[in-house]
């Protein structure tokens, strides 16, 4: 399911849905956004600011924001927190040395007042690489079990092979639909 079919399956309502893609640098956020938009992924550079993908259908608007993850730009993440409907936190599953660092960044995000109650999908990306940590290892390493007050879901995926992305987006769609009903 690309973004277009995601938009189609949203319940019709007069509103905007805002999804935020965050995660450490090199996690694959931009690759995920491009794959979901069915765009070319061969020449992706590290994101210095942000990318946004907007889709409109009838009175309904879907905005997906992809923000750069380098350490120096992480302090600017908070500028994008307002009115977030769902957070997608992306992890490079093959970068085992930085799994715990990912976890710390995620915890900081979830402690933000503006992020209170926002559902979070964790994409365990780059599953096509042989040394990729499994979703189970990532769950433990990030202590996802201590998350309360919001739904969370972990989804193994490969942005490169377009595997697992649609399952994750389907979860988000269900969550957003059930909230707006």
């Amino acid at each position: 399911m690309g973004l277009l079919s995601l938009l189609r399956s949203m319940r019709k309502s007069d509103r905007e849905v805002r999804i935020l893609l965050l995660g450490l640098d090199n996690a694959g956020k931009t690759t995920i956004l491009k794959t979901l938009s069915e765009e070319d992924i061969t020449h992706i550079m590290p994101t210095q600011g942000f990318n946004i993908k907007s889709l409109v259908r009838d009175n309904f608007k879907l905005n997906v924001w992809d923000i750069g993850g380098q350490k120096t730009i992480r302090p600017y993440w908070r500028n994008y927190f307002d009115q977030t409907d769902a957070l997608v936190f992306v992890i490079d599953s093959a970068d085992k040395a930085r799994l715990e660092e990912s976890g710390i960044e995620l915890n900081l995000l979830l402690e933000e007042e503006k992020m209170a109650g926002v559902p979070v999908l964790i994409f365990a990306n780059k599953q096509d690489l042989i040394n990729a940590a499994t979703a189970e290892e990532i769950t433990t390493s990030l202590s996802l079990h201590s998350i309360r007050g919001r739904p969370w879901q972990i989804q193994a995926c490969s942005a490169k092979k377009n595997e697992g992305l649609s399952e994750g987006m389907e979860w988000i769609m269900n969550i957003i639909n059930s909230k707006s009903s």
């Binding site: 739904p151 879901q153 972990i154 269900n174």
Partner: peptide, 11 residues
Amino acid sequence: ENITPTWGFMS
């Protein structure tokens, strides 16, 4: 309806 497998937590 529209129930998908759970890989996490919901309350």
